[in-house]
Simulated assay, not measured.
Amino acid sequence: MSSEVAARRDAKKLVRSPSGLRMVPEHRAFGSPFGLEEPQWVPDKECPRCMQCGAKFDFLTRKHHCRRCGKCFCDKCCSQKVALRRMCFVDPVRQCAECALVSHREAEFFDKQLKVLLSGATFLVTFGHSEKPETMVCRLSNNQRFLLLDGSSRHEVEIARISAVQMLSEGFPPGGGNARATGMSLQYPAPGAEGVTQLKLTAGEDANGSRRQATAWLAAMHKAAKLLYESRDQ
């Protein structure tokens, strides 16, 4: 990919919407696959009362729209201003209590797990029905749109085209608890190929810390997959 094409993909612009300022991709097709579209606001005439507590709107009780769900609330039920990165808002925006809780939880992904995905980790990678794995570094591209795999060969998988994600695990720790994640299987339609291609990532066994890094990367990718499915179901 030329630097000119890459720059065009990553170009952003500042736009003003009824909900606030947003820093969005110059070209919509190059947006993050984890993003959400702004909701349509419930028309004022259709919500004479708060959609949470039922308080009647009047001169003293003003109505506010949640920037995440678009519903009408009184100030008491929609007073929190929380960062909403999935809609690319520059500043924290007003949200109802339920949406604010979700946005707070998502902040962990953008503050911690996204950084893990961007840093990458080393895996044994198997493509399709091949029986010979290749040691590769897998990381998320800076624009969050591709998985980049670098080894003796190079590959990229468009995040938005991933159709299935399955965590691979083995055994249970002594005393109970969750099974240990050892890898991940991804399915996606490869460009120019018929049917679905399978990609298997397996964390290697070593003592230099890369196994721990790979496990953290798998956990972050699992969270990313959940956000991806939510974006599709919007």
Results as ranks from 00 to 15, higher is better:
48 P>K: 11
3 S>Y: 09
34 F>N: 00
140 L>R: 02
28 R>P: 06
165 V>Q: 05
220 A>K: 12
188 Y>D: 02
149 L>G: 06
191 P>K: 05
171 G>Y: 05
109 F>V: 07
162 I>S: 01
26 E>Y: 12
187 Q>L: 00
131 E>C: 05
120 G>H: 00
59 F>Y: 12
121 A>V: 01
66 C>Q: 11
226 K>F: 08
6 A>G: 01
107 A>E: 15
86 R>N: 07
44 D>G: 03
174 P>L: 10
25 P>Y: 02
228 L>K: 09
209 G>Y: 06
120 G>W: 07
91 D>H: 08
116 V>H: 03
101 L>C: 11
83 A>R: 15
115 K>C: 00
18 P>W: 10
36 L>Y: 04
9 R>A: 04
10 D>C: 14
104 H>T: 12
233 D>L: 06
99 C>D: 12
87 M>Q: 13
51 M>H: 01
165 V>C: 05
132 K>G: 00
208 N>V: 13
95 Q>K: 05
231 S>P: 02
48 P>R: 13
65 H>Q: 02
100 A>W: 01
223 K>H: 11
160 A>M: 01
202 T>M: 08
30 F>R: 03
227 L>H: 08
68 R>P: 00
184 M>C: 15
206 D>M: 15
176 G>Q: 03
149 L>M: 14
158 E>P: 01
92 P>S: 08
177 G>N: 06
92 P>I: 11
219 A>G: 05
186 L>A: 07
147 L>F: 07
161 R>Y: 01
155 H>N: 10
66 C>N: 10
202 T>L: 15
29 A>L: 10
126 T>M: 09
124 L>P: 00
150 D>S: 15
43 P>V: 10
163 S>E: 11
166 Q>T: 14
173 P>Q: 15
130 S>Q: 10
30 F>Y: 15
40 Q>R: 14
126 T>C: 06
36 L>A: 02
37 E>N: 06
227 L>D: 02
164 A>L: 09
125 V>E: 03
179 A>V: 08
2 S>G: 10
126 T>H: 00
46 E>Y: 12
141 S>C: 04
84 L>W: 09
101 L>Q: 15
230 E>C: 07
23 M>R: 07
88 C>S: 14
154 R>W: 00
172 F>W: 14
63 K>D: 04
185 S>A: 13
154 R>G: 08
128 G>P: 07
157 V>R: 04
18 P>Y: 13
90 V>E: 10
26 E>I: 06
41 W>F: 14
189 P>I: 07
120 G>F: 02
30 F>D: 06
195 G>S: 05
215 T>M: 13
15 V>Q: 08
14 L>Q: 08
202 T>C: 10
41 W>M: 05
106 E>L: 13
140 L>Q: 03
187 Q>S: 08
155 H>S: 05
145 R>C: 04
134 E>F: 11
127 F>Q: 00
146 F>E: 05
206 D>E: 13
201 L>A: 04
155 H>M: 09
223 K>L: 11
26 E>C: 11
214 A>Q: 03
89 F>E: 06
149 L>T: 03
222 H>Y: 10
112 K>I: 13
112 K>W: 03
99 C>S: 00
188 Y>R: 01
7 A>E: 13
163 S>N: 07
127 F>N: 01
58 D>K: 09
71 K>F: 11
174 P>F: 11
77 C>T: 14
116 V>K: 10
105 R>Q: 13
95 Q>M: 15
103 S>E: 09
92 P>G: 03
166 Q>I: 12
